[in-house]
């Protein structure tokens, strides 16, 4: 268990700047999730913590030591890769034990460690199989077991669940959360799935074009997004952005945002016509084209039988309004 600190990290590949000016403090034992659009630099940032990539500028600290120039194996970190990256020619047992063997761990201690993590991840029955004989979910467990067995201070995950089907993903997500509690280890997790991010994270780091937009607990980011980008990134359907004229007190805002779930159909308010109806079971989403020309999403199931083309009025509470200035910063 260790803290991780990034100071003024920048990364350039040739002349393209992929990460710029990233400062981040991760507490010991914390679960931090990096989220962002594809190409925002999540993997690159994670790989610099792992030591697989060298920052062009800045320092990386793990615990109290500056590890910027240390090789990956001396940083006390383990990584779980998106493709699992198991050694295809080795059995599950050999896969898990490979790192220990390289550290010249004794045979008995190694055997014991492998059994312990295999029990923890319920893969004892698979120990003598090769990766090719495992399902995707089982491979994922082996990959996690391999990461755990070396008892690292910091765990790094790069989209470990993205190759699993939806049901398995949800289940494994909970297991990873459980694992975090059991091991009380520092975990840094990369995903582009915001639900996964919100469910796992103690704190979320939202990356946009190589810099950090906002860092904070999921609820804070969701309810008090620091920028328009964060506001739009979190939530599905995405937040509705409207000109300040639609609200009474714009407070000098350049645009205002209201989440679909904060809007409802009412007797009076902004009027518009229903363009599309999404029936999702537990909820219903109405896409309404306002008279001003903007299309908004409204999460509301109060109407009995909404019809496309039907004229409705939409309203919201003042407390639900997010105000942003011309630069996209929260007011």
């Amino acid at each position: 268990m260790s803290s991780v600190r990034l100071e003024g990290i920048a990364k350039r590949f040739g002349s393209t700047e992929v990460i710029r000016g990233v400062d981040l403090d991760i507490q010991s034992g914390e679960f931090v999730v990096f989220v962002g659009a594809s190409g925002s630099g999540k993997s690159t940032l994670l790989r610099m913590i792992a030591g697989l990539e060298q920052p062009s500028e800045g320092r990386v600290f793990i615990g109290d030591s500056d590890v910027t120039d240390a090789p990956p194996s001396e940083r006390g970190v383990s990584m779980v890769f998106q493709s699992y990256a198991l050694y295809p020619h080795m059995t599950v047992r050999e896969n898990i034990a490979f790192g220990l063997k390289l550290k010249k761990t004794g045979k008995a201690a190694m055997e014991e460690a492998v059994t312990r993590v295999a029990t923890m991840l319920e893969i004892e029955a698979l120990l003598d199989r090769k990766p090719g004989q495992l399902s995707g979910g089982q491979r994922q467990r082996v990959a996690i077991a391999r990461a755990i067995v070396r008892e690292p201070d910091v765990f790094l995950f790069d989209e470990p669940l993205s190759n699993l089907d939806a049901a398995l993903r949800t289940r494994t997500r909970i297991e990873i959360k459980d694992l975090h509690r059991k091991l009380a280890a520092t975990m840094i997790y990369v995903t582009h799935d915001q639900v996964e991010a919100m469910s796992l994270a103690d704190r979320m780091v939202i990356l946009n074009g190589g810099h950090i937009e906002q860092v904070g607990p999921p609820v804070v980011l969701y309810h008090e997004p620091a920028t328009k980008y964060v506001a739009a990134f979190l939530g599905s359907p995405t937040m509705n952005f409207l000109p300040p004229s639609v609200v009474g007190d714009a407070g000098g805002a350049d645009s205002v945002g209201i989440r679909p779930e904060d809007m409802r159909v009412a007797d009076s308010g902004l009027s518009g016509t229903i363009e599309e109806v999404e029936e999702l079971g537990e909820t219903r989403i109405l896409h309404v084209k306002l008279e001003g020309g903007e299309t908004i999403a409204v999460r509301d199931r109060s109407l009995d039988d909404p019809k496309i083309g039907q004229v409705v009025s939409v309203t919201f509470d003042d407390t639900a309004i997010h105000r942003f200035d011309a630069k996209g910063a929260r007011i």
Binding site: A50, L52, P71, P72, S73, V77, S78, M79, F81, Q82, S83, A85, L86, Y87, P88, F98, G99, L102, K103, R146, R150
Partner: peptide, 22 residues
């Protein structure tokens, strides 16, 4: 796959070990 090599690096394998063992 590059990731297999990187996994080996994370496991503490030297270039020699990566070539010969992996």
């Amino acid at each position: 796959p590059v990731e297999i090599e990187e996994a080996a690096i994370m496991d503490g394998a030297s270039s020699w070990t990566i070539v010969t063992k992996v």
